[in-house]
Simulated scan of single mutants.
Amino acid sequence: MPAEQQSAQRRSRAWRIARTLLQGDRPYMLYIAFAILLVVFSFASPWFLSIDNFLNIGRQTALVSIIAIGMTFVIIARQIDLSVGSSLALSGMAAALAMSHINDSWIVGAIAGIGTGAIVGAINGFVTTRLSIPSFLVTLGSLSAARGLALMVTTTRPEIITNDTFISIFGEGSIAGVPAPILWTLLAVVGGILLLHYSVFGRQIYAAGGNPTAALYSGINIRRVTTLAFVLTGVLAGLAALVLSARSHAARPDVVQGMELDVIASVTLGGCSLFGGRGFILGTLLGSLIIGTLNNGLVLLGVSSSLQLVIKGVIIVAAVAFTRK
């Protein structure tokens, strides 16, 4: 095969991949919004435009970004999961308790944390699909139940984590200067892209959310696909729990209350439709980074916390309005 033809095929393949990653309705608005935030805060604060600050933004947004990858699958499937914050708290407690009672093994702790998140997701998916109860109500109930269980197992007290390997792998370690929380975020993003955009399961998720009737007549098991989406979200909530527990050197049952709102905001800001059938992983990541950058820049500018909430709310609504379907 001539070299020119091989080069043309490589360029065509690269273009198809780029087009897949950038798919969505008017995604360029996300990049414009992100670029405007970077420019404005760079001029407004002399401390914003630095590697250390960007790494700090990455660490601050890691938990939301990781869980938002899973939430993207759930929302594309025309569902919602309000229990991710409580699932994270319960998963963190499970990981810490497993390590403290089973030979202080970080592997056991990781399995316990991720497994607990998967169980919560499986329960959400099973009740939603088998009992035909709206996922909003199901996950609202599991939000309360999981949080209550996390408080019960330790009588509201934190569980200290002393395993240095666990803390290094999930919280304080780094590779080539990149902190572990950011590395886990990148791993979740790459896995989410491959699963959503390059697998049969991803195509089934889009079909189940876009037109459930047509998907059913096409032979797609909508119950199974939807349940797996909830399980994936639970797994990623468990991973986020490991990251948070390692960074804090402890698991607390009262952490990240209200995180589900930031997660859902990141997904919708990233171009995912709450009516299902539309969304892409890179958009979700950008949505999370926009919210994280906005929080970081407002703190550097010394804006009061109450005004921060007002500004963030207005900007999120405006951004979603520009990127809506």
Rank of each mutant, 00 (worst) to 15 (best):
E4S: 05
E4G: 12
Q5A: 08
Q6G: 03
S7W: 02
S12M: 12
W15K: 14
T20V: 02
T20D: 08
L30S: 04
I32C: 00
A33D: 03
L38A: 05
F41T: 09
S42W: 04
S42G: 07
S42A: 03
A44N: 15
L49V: 15
I51V: 10
I51D: 01
L55Y: 02
L55T: 04
R59Y: 04
T61W: 02
A62Q: 08
L63G: 06
V64S: 03
I67Y: 13
A68V: 05
I69Y: 01
F73T: 13
I76E: 02
I76D: 09
I80M: 15
I80Y: 11
D81H: 12
V84W: 05
V84M: 12
G85S: 11
S87E: 13
L88M: 06
L88Q: 09
A89C: 13
S91D: 06
A96G: 13
A98Y: 01
M99Q: 06
S100Y: 01
I102L: 09
N103G: 15
N103T: 14
N103I: 14
S105H: 08
I107C: 13
I111C: 05
T116I: 12
G117T: 08
I119L: 11
V120H: 01
N124I: 15
G125C: 14
G125H: 13
T129W: 01
L137Q: 10
V138D: 12
L140M: 15
S144W: 09
A145Y: 06
A145V: 09
A146Y: 06
G148N: 09
L151R: 12
L151T: 15
T154G: 02
I160W: 07
I160R: 10
I161H: 10
T162S: 12
N163I: 11
S168A: 06
S168K: 13
S168R: 11
I169G: 00
F170M: 00
G171N: 03
G171E: 01
E172A: 03
E172G: 00
S174P: 08
I175F: 12
P179H: 00
T185L: 10
T185H: 12
T185P: 10
L186N: 05
A188N: 03
V190Y: 00
I193W: 00
L195N: 00
V200I: 10
F201L: 14
A207G: 12
G210N: 08
L216F: 15
S218P: 08
N221Q: 07
N221R: 03
R223S: 11
R224W: 02
T226I: 09
T226S: 11
A229C: 06
F230P: 14
V231C: 08
T233R: 07
V235H: 02
L236P: 07
A237K: 13
A246T: 11
R247K: 10
A250T: 03
D254T: 06
V255T: 12
V255R: 08
L261C: 11
L261Q: 13
A265E: 07
S266F: 11
L269W: 07
F275Q: 01
L282N: 04
L282R: 05
T284F: 01
L285E: 07
L286H: 08
L289G: 01
L289Y: 00
I291N: 02
G292I: 08
N296G: 14
V303L: 10
V303C: 11
V303Y: 06
S304K: 13
I311C: 07
K312Y: 10
V314F: 14
I316C: 03
V317C: 01
V320H: 02
F322N: 00
T323K: 09
